[in-house]
Write a protein that binds this DNA or RNA. Structure first.
Lengths: 147, 147
DNA sequence: AATGAAAATGAAAATCATTATCAGTTAATA
DNA sequence: TATTAACTGATAATGATTTTCATTTTCATT
């Protein structure tokens, strides 16, 4: 992942400050699994920084999303979930179990997917004059345990 | 689209009743554009059936979703949106403008997409023992007016 | 190091979509 | 027609997210 220096510069360049709460939230993303909800992030941050409030977590998640550092998704479980938008998770490919809510990330077949989405993005951009920045593919069904 | 008789039978077979409020809600889907929110559906139903309550709309949308008649999506604008899950909209392909929230349905390149998703579904099903029922592809970016 | 302005914060209240409750209504079946 | 279960509207409750506001922090400039 990117170093702290890179982040600091990005914040500074856009007129924001890389404060302690914001660093703490970024650390959570670097140290934990993906698909974290605001509440989960709040609790994880709370371990080391009990003073950080939930509103700040929401505000920071919003900011990081706008900056393109994290990606916000909705898997239908009643709250938004966030994950790092770095290279490794660029495509946001998920299998979502509609019974238990489990989310599986797959990172196989990415080459094939990249090829397909690149082509489609080019065609859609032209036809609809739409500037595509990212995409998301969700497969819904039943996981092994729920069948 | 399917006739009323088909719907009636489906409801009956599964132990549900095709009541006036439910018919009114189905009519809304057959007569209006897609991506309707619960609130929008409530208002449209309200024109002809002022007695139908919002809770019933939510309950019916839930039922129709479970029955697979409509499809529930989240486009990140704070509420769930619903559309008919008939053949024409099977794939749920959307371009979502992250600035103005506009949603564009595309129905081009569906053949290519079908081929891709079929292949991927087969491979993912095998690898993750996941029974895939549906999928959703969202492209996020800026529409022509927002660039 | 002191200062001033803008950005950021925590706590609490407010908002808003959705869900649960409950008493009354409707529809299918015996 | 009586019984039963499904369904309903109105309302209250819930829970995630946003807003408010007074206070604190940060940073560029003295």
């Amino acid at each position: 992942m990117h170093g702290a220096g890179w982040c600091y510069r990005r914040f500074k360049d856009e007129g924001f400050r890389l404060t302690i709460p914001r660093q703490a939230i970024l650390d959570v993303f670097n140290q934990n699994s993906k698909h974290l909800s605001a509440e989960e992030i709040f609790l994880l941050v709370h371990r080391n920084y009990p003073g950080v409030g939930l509103a700040t977590v929401y505000r920071t998640l919003d900011l990081l999303t706008q900056m393109g550092i994290i990606f916000k998704s909705d898997f239908g479980d009643g709250c938004s979930r966030y994950e790092l938008a770095d290279e490794a998770t660029k495509g946001h490919h998920h299998l979502i179990c509609t019974r238990c809510g489990r989310i599986i990330d797959y990172s196989d077949f990415i080459e094939k997917e990249e090829k397909f989405t690149k082509e489609l993005e080019t065609e859609l951009s032209q036809k609809y004059k739409f500037k595509i920045n990212s995409h998301q593919i969700h497969f819904y069904g039943l996981c092994d345990k729920c069948q």
